[in-house]
Design a binder for these strands. Structure first.
Lengths: 209, 209
DNA sequence: CAAAATTTGTGAATAAAATCACGTTTTCAA
DNA sequence: TTGAAAACGTGATTTTATTCACAAATTTTG
């Protein structure tokens, strides 16, 4: 099993490789990816090595081949469907996030309790909460994003589990509880991220990003 | 110097302690905080120990005292002013983020190039970009949030540096470059976070959250 | 074609982080 | 007031992550 931070690095390598590809690079060296992502070349090679991603000695990595392999590891070789629960600013931000357009990530619908948010005609339509389970099952959605206030998050989480969701990205600042060990939960707490930044500014030390 | 993940944990302990306080708890044990945040009790104590935060053997930690000490470490003993550059959904989400209301984090203004976003009267007003430097200096703002498209991020970053910003939270999916070593940059890439989730669902392993 | 230059791939070494384990202190109850 | 139970604090240990360093492979050059 590989650690969370190793996988995060693979994503960054992939993004860097994509940018280099758009500059018409055909091949890339561990050193290039290291510069672009702020790690050591050695780390890049070690990360690749652990996933069986290999290049050519002296010749670096063919970008297209590298991207294929990285996308495979990251599960981006096939479309991954997401729903967003809670269509406030944050939820709306996820629905409209431009970075997903040319990726295999698709936000297929939003859900909310507020009728003024409903919109069945939009590209990513917004439905009432009680249609969630049926929608998830019909459309075989595997992932959910929780962007509701903290007091509602646990309840939404339980609904997502019941609907058969496999992975959850949680923006609410609480630790979601479940005895279902099949579901994967990752938390993203904006206040925590900001506090982290404040700390490192106050101590005037910039840690590895 | 302490690592990024250790500071992130301190934030989580603080959030957990706040919730317990709201339940009228007066004291809390390392074991409680461990449960609430998903780490071991030993880790909680070690983290505290490294910051000189101490409790009472057998008696746990006094919540009020603990919060005071955590807030001090995290720089939340005084108001921290932020501006947001790019008032799209994500930027708007940060401006309206409810978690900041009762914290010492204040988003004091937004900036955008789109005149339709301008609003000088709002609680967190939105101004044109060319007022940024003057605003930052007049109001002694230390922190900036970059929520613009990737192609604009580097330019915005340079403006923030020039204006004297000390810390930047960057949502754009690029690595910001600068030879100024005083500025602290933390990156938050939503696509990367989602790819990470996809990976762990696909490999059916839930790593430490 | 041979030699020189360069870059990968990976075990070994080092560093960093987490956990263990137990002495010390405090609390509580009889 | 004393003894037992509970919980902290932290040095020692273990685990995990990163970096080093160099042989092997490939490319380039003369």
């Amino acid at each position: 099993m590989s650690s969370r931070s190793r996988i995060l690095r693979l994503s960054r390598y992939k993004n860097a490789a994509l940018r280099l590809k758009s500059l018409n690079f055909l091949k890339v060296f561990s050193d290039n990816l290291a510069d672009a992502t702020g790690v050591t070349a050695s780390q890049v090679r070690k990360d690749f090595s652990l996933f069986g991603i290999s290049g050519n000695r002296r010749g670096g990595y063919q970008i297209d081949e590298l991207l294929t392999q990285l996308n495979k590891v990251l599960g981006k070789d096939k479309l991954q469907k997401f729903i967003v629960v809670g269509v406030g600013n944050m939820g709306r931000g996820m629905i409209n996030y431009p970075g997903f357009i040319k990726s295999e990530i698709k936000i297929v619908a939003g859900f909310d309790i507020d009728p003024s948010k409903y919109n069945r005609k939009a590209d990513a339509p917004v439905f009432p909460m009680d249609e969630l389970t049926a929608f998830v099952k019909t459309n075989e959605v595997e992932f959910g994003i929780i962007a509701v206030p903290d007091f509602a998050a646990q309840e939404v989480f339980e609904r997502l589990i019941q609907a058969g969701i496999k992975g959850v990205l949680n923006f609410a600042p609480i630790r979601l509880k479940s005895d279902n060990t099949d579901i994967v939960v990752h938390n993203l707490n904006l206040e925590t991220e900001i506090e982290n930044l404040i700390y490192f500014v106050n101590t005037k030390v910039n840690p590895a990003e």
